[in-house]
C-alpha cells in the first residue's frame, strides 16, 4: 500500500496536493499554505485524481456523521452546567422540524427559572445545533474568555446552560423568560468538510418572538480551523458591549 493510502486523512489540506508537472513547486506549496481549500490537487483529464477524490469522500462522511451525533452527558457535567431540551425528541426531529427546535416546553422553562439567576445583563447559553462536536471543542475556551471579559467590564452574566436539539431561535423564548437585556447563544453550525466542529454566536438585544432574523448580530466560523475560540470570544465581548450601548443588534433598515 502506498504511504498516502495508508492514512489518507493524516495530512492537512495544506499538505495534501500534487505538484507533478508544476512549473514552480516552491511557489505552489507556499500558496497552498495560505488556505485549507482543496487547491493544487492535480487532475486526471478534467476529473480529480484518486487520492483527492477519496479524501473528499472521507471528509464528507465525517461531516455527515457529526450531524447525527449526540453531545455526551459527561461533557455537560464537565462544563459544570445543567441541560434542558426543546420539543424535538431526536436528531431526525431536529432536521425536519426547525419549528420544534425553537420551542421550550413548560417543564423545561420551569427548570430554567429554578436554576438561573433572573434579569442578568447578558444571558449566554450553548446549543448543539447541527454539530454536536462543536460544544466540547470550543465552549471551554470560548465561554471562559467571554464571561471573564464581561465580568471585567462589570457586566453581569446569567447562569449558563446547555440546550439539546437547539435552534438559534430558542433565544426568542429564553431571552424574555430570564429577563436578559442581551441574549447570546453559542451553537454548533452546519459541519463542513474542513471542520466538523465549528460554531456560531447569535447575539440579540432583547430578543422576542416577533423579532426579525436581521436583528441578530452573528459571529460564525468559530473553531481552531476558522476564528480561534479565544479570538472570537474577545470579538463577542466587544460586540456585546457595543450592543448594550446602542441598545440594538443586527442590521437595521434605517441605516
Amino acid at each position: 500500500m502506498s504511504e498516502i493510502m495508508s492514512n489518507l486523512t493524516e495530512k492537512t489540506m495544506q499538505q495534501f496536493g500534487c505538484d507533478d508537472g508544476i512549473l514552480e513547486p516552491g511557489l505552489f506549496w507556499k500558496a497552498k499554505e495560505a488556505t485549507p481549500a482543496r487547491i493544487g490537487i492535480g487532475h486526471a483529464g478534467a476529473r480529480c485524481k484518486t487520492d483527492s477524490m477519496l479524501r473528499f469522500l472521507a471528509d464528507h462522511a465525517q461531516a455527515s456523521d457529526s450531524v447525527f451525533m449526540e453531545v455526551d452527558e459527561d461533557i455537560i457535567k464537565k462544563l459544570g452546567i445543567f441541560e434542558i431540551h426543546t420539543r424535538c425528541r431526536n436528531k431526525e426531529d431536529m432536521i425536519l422540524r426547525p419549528d420544534w427546535g425553537r420551542i421550550i416546553e413548560e417543564d423545561q422553562q420551569m427548570l430554567l427559572k429554578q436554576n438561573c439567576i433572573s434579569n442578568p445583563k447578558v444571558q449566554i447559553y450553548f446549543g448543539d445545533g447541527l454539530c454536536s462536536p462543536a460544544i466540547a471543542a470550543n465552549i471551554p475556551d470560548l465561554y471562559k474568555v467571554i464571561s471573564s471579559g464581561l465580568d471585567f467590564e462589570g457586566i453581569t452574566v446569567g447562569t449558563p446552560f446547555f440546550v439539546r436539539y437547539c435552534r438559534v431561535n430558542t433565544a426568542r423564548i429564553i431571552g424574555p423568560l430570564l429577563g436578559a437585556e442581551v441574549t447570546c447563544v453559542l451553537i454548533g453550525e452546519r459541519p463542513g468538510l474542513t471542520t466538523a466542529e465549528s460554531m456560531s454566536a447569535y447575539i440579540a438585544y432583547k430578543p422576542h418572538p416577533l423579532m426579525l432574523e436581521s436583528e441578530y448580530t452573528v459571529v460564525s466560523n468559530i473553531s481552531r480551523f476558522g476564528i480561534p475560540p479565544v479570538e472570537a470570544a474577545a470579538h463577542i465581548v466587544d460586540l456585546i458591549i457595543e450592543i448594550l450601548e446602542k441598545k440594538q443588534s443586527g442590521i437595521h433598515i434605517d441605516y
Binding site: 488556505t35 485549507p36 481549500a37 482543496r38 490537487i41 480529480c48 483527492s52 473528499f56 471528509d59 453550525e189 452546519r190 459541519p191 463542513g192 468538510l193 474542513t194 471542520t195 465549528s198 466560523n221
Partner: peptide, 8 residues
C-alpha cells in the same frame, strides 16, 4: 473541489 471552506 466543490468544498466551500467558509460557507460549509
Amino acid at each position: 473541489q466543490g468544498d466551500d471552506i467558509m460557507l460549509m
